[in-house]
Design a protein around this nucleic acid. Structure first.
Lengths: 358, 358
DNA sequence: ACCTTCAGGTAAACCGGTTTGCTAAACGGG
DNA sequence: CCCGTTTAGCAAACCGGTTTACCTGAAGGT
């Protein structure tokens, strides 16, 4: 088990070779001002010719910090990276972390256990994204004395720092937009909970967006029965399947409210296969405003949320929590959302009375 | 500096509380069979009520391994995550790493120094992507006794395990495709080296693809002067700028060979702004075949490379290098590329002799 | 000539675990 | 009843550094 360090020189080797104590070698690297100039440079010379570098793990142990931040997700990394939303989010976190000299460790369930992965993680703190109320890992982290910043689940963890966006408001503006275009017949495409056990929590992103849709529709006197809400994985294929499935079930909406851009794009795809024109026959509004949405055909009308900034803010919050002890007042930040109207939404088609028959 | 461990219980606390030795506590977790059943469970009970979890860093130190893999990139993480190519690559690495119970640490230059970041990295090995010949960090890692798998730079580091694709062949097939469509007037859009110091290495991805383009064109009797090769950052805007710049310089190609899909998409964008129709007036062929390319308008003709599999293979190679000592024979794997013809390429337009005038 | 002060360096404790011998008691066979 | 073998558990060494507390000799002050 000692294979890694087979030939790696230790600090004692350098010390012996340079004819000084271990302490001196350590000083040469960490506080050279405590040594005379020659000794310091001589030691460093010896070190480089020996190819010595301080063992990072040993260093972490004594210094009591890792200079690494963890990004915690309840999903497998392979699905995380497949999602452009996460990529952009990570981009934000990474930018701030890097600037501050911190590395980034991705922590996801190992052998199915997130708790296990958390225990193994050598980090100074976590940014957790998409953790729902039920996750016991949060408590576990708190007990370990590590700070954690919750993203998109502020309400569920009031005692922790958090960042989220105005999901409900964004959803409402999406629905309002379609209502203003004359639509009456809606289909909501939601994001399936990754972990089956968790109930469709009203505190989660999905719940908040659904709430927004519902309120807007209700204000226009429109009810949204449960069969008008379908869910699937947050992928293009997921969105495709959602619309295709609903269509087979006989639903003929004129407008789709999708909770994620990738799913919205999938829905547009499915629509095309069904011979429908977007937005002439069917309007689609997404959520997130990922870069891709600007480039698909037609460009996607969607609710913009500052994903990258969300990552940045979360990281900043975490860094300041790490820096100072007084984590007494957990900082909550809510970022704004706004509707971006592009080409995938248009006036409701004139309903041919015949359609209902088929 | 001891703030992290303020209240965290140590193994000694558990030992005292349970009335046993530290050894016993350690055994209770790592080799319970060496303890009687009650003692083991009693210790574990005490541990959980105290909220004890073994300190991961201390564990790493004694066990001599971190169960973490490093993804090494010479670029800042914020640009890495902005690139869908990397996201897909990471997806592949992550899938295999996760399966094997390894965490993933992203290692990028800290305060401008990659070497520094490498020294801080607590990993069992590295997957390095996009490192060119000149990077001294590779040697540094080798001396530290850590295995490393090179991706996309096999030729530059024959002594290490490596994965790459047939860049030259892919590039050639792209050029051949356009030649067959009657094009004679080309513009190559290349990827700018992220680190300014490095020369436009012929061994790098850019060099190999350029070589492929050149050979195919040469075989058709077409020369590719240097002013027909422009470079920019591997982003949509980068691609846009490349075409726009070339156009301003008076170039009027009928076909574009882009070394990355995002840049190709940028070029299509720029073309649209110039009032050109793709593919009627201008054909564009990309490289990579990222998911996005299927969904833009027109769908992008491009050279497919198995990006995700590249990540998977690299990770597998790394894991096996970590597992066994006999790293005598570095494993090199080359994956195939193939042209995917979609909508962004078409027959060369009939050249109006007038065009050159303007 | 004597007392400080300070620069330069060291030995030992420490970080928080794991692992290696070793011992004492229980067991069990002859 | 005696001796060899397990079984259960412990003390101490160790992983590879950092940090504290202390020492020494020379310079500086009076």
């Amino acid at each position: 088990m000692r294979q890694e360090s087979r030939d790696r020189p230790r600090i004692a080797d350098v010390a012996r070779e340079a004819g000084v104590s271990k302490t001196a070698v350590s000083f040469a690297f960490n506080s050279p001002e405590r040594l005379s100039l020659d000794t310091a440079t001589r030691i460093r010379d010896v070190a480089t010719t020996l190819g010595y570098r301080p063992h990072p793990v040993a260093r972490m142990l004594t210094q009591g910090r890792t200079r690494t931040l963890g990004i915690l997700t309840p999903q497998a990394l392979s699905v995380v990276f497949a999602n452009p939303f996460f990529a952009t989010f990570s981009e934000g976190v990474a930018a701030v972390a890097e600037e501050a000299g911190y590395g980034l460790l991705f922590v996801s369930p190992l052998h199915g256990s997130l708790a296990h992965a958390v225990n193994r993680a050598t980090v100074d703190g976590f940014v957790a994204i998409g953790l729902s109320e039920e996750h016991p890992e949060v408590e576990q982290i708190r007990r370990a004395g590590l700070p954690i910043v919750m993203v998109d689940s502020a309400a569920a963890f009031p005692e922790h720092a958090a960042v989220d966006v105005d999901d409900e408001g964004g959803a409402r503006s999406a629905a309002d937009h379609l209502l203003a275009l004359g639509h009456r017949d809606f289909l909501v495409i939601g994001i399936e909970q990754p972990t089956p056990g968790t109930r469709a929590d009203s505190t989660g992103v999905v719940g908040r967006r659904l709430e927004g849709y519902r309120k807007a529709l209700a204000a226009a006197g429109i009810d949204l029965p449960n069969d008008r809400v379908v869910v699937g994985p947050a992928t293009i294929d997921g969105g495709r399947a959602c619309l295709a499935g609903a269509w087979e079930d006989g639903l003929r909406p004129t407008a789709i409210l999708a909770m994620s851009d990738v799913m919205a794009i999938g829905a547009v795809n499915a629509a095309r296969r069904l011979g429908l024109h977007v937005p002439a026959d069917l309007s689609v509004v997404g959520f997130d405003d990922i870069e891709l949405s600007r480039h698909v055909e037609p460009p996607l009308t969607t609710v913009h949320q500052p994903v990258r900034r969300k990552g940045e803010e979360a990281c900043r919050l975490l860094l300041s929590a790490i820096a100072k002890e007084d984590s007494a007042r957990p900082d909550h930040r809510r970022l704004e959302t706004r509707l971006i109207v592009r080409g995938s939404s248009g006036p409701a088609p004139i309903r041919k009375e015949v359609a209902a028959g088929r």
